[in-house]
């Protein structure tokens, strides 16, 4: 019962229009995530599982499944290391029911 698989199953029910090649969330300074951040709360708390730890210890974000809640930006209050914009108009999550 892997949590990673479960969130993908959930997100599969959602409708998205992905803005290919133009992610709306990025890490400002990757070294900071790797060396200065003990909590890495973004990985634990993102409700869409967009944040992961690579094998080499680097934190990465893939925002294709993003629900545009803002959690990762606000939870990074020790470092303010998340560049976060809304997707371009019309792109991103398109809630069927909301």
């Amino acid at each position: 019962m892997s949590a990673a698989i479960k969130v993908e199953e959930k997100l599969f029910q959602n409708r998205y229009k992905v803005d290919a090649g133009r992610p709306h969330i990025s890490i400002i300074d990757e070294d900071k995530c790797r060396n200065n951040c003990a909590s890495q709360a973004c990985i634990t708390c993102c409700p869409a599982g967009c944040w992961t730890m690579e094998g080499n210890g680097q934190v990465t974000v893939i925002s294709d499944g993003c629900l545009e809640c803002g959690t990762c930006r606000i939870i990074c209050d020790d470092h303010r290391n998340v560049a976060w914009e809304y997707p371009r108009g019309g792109y991103g999550i398109l809630f069927k029911f909301g």
């Binding site: 949590a3 479960k6 969130v7 959930k10 909590s39 709360a41 634990t44 708390c45 409700p47 599982g49 959690t71 606000i74 939870i75």
Partner: peptide, 14 residues
């Protein structure tokens, strides 16, 4: 509260 999620390291969908 987001501060509690952070403190307790809980994943919301779990």
């Amino acid at each position: 509260m987001l501060s509690d999620f952070k403190k307790q390291k809980i994943t919301p969908f779990e």
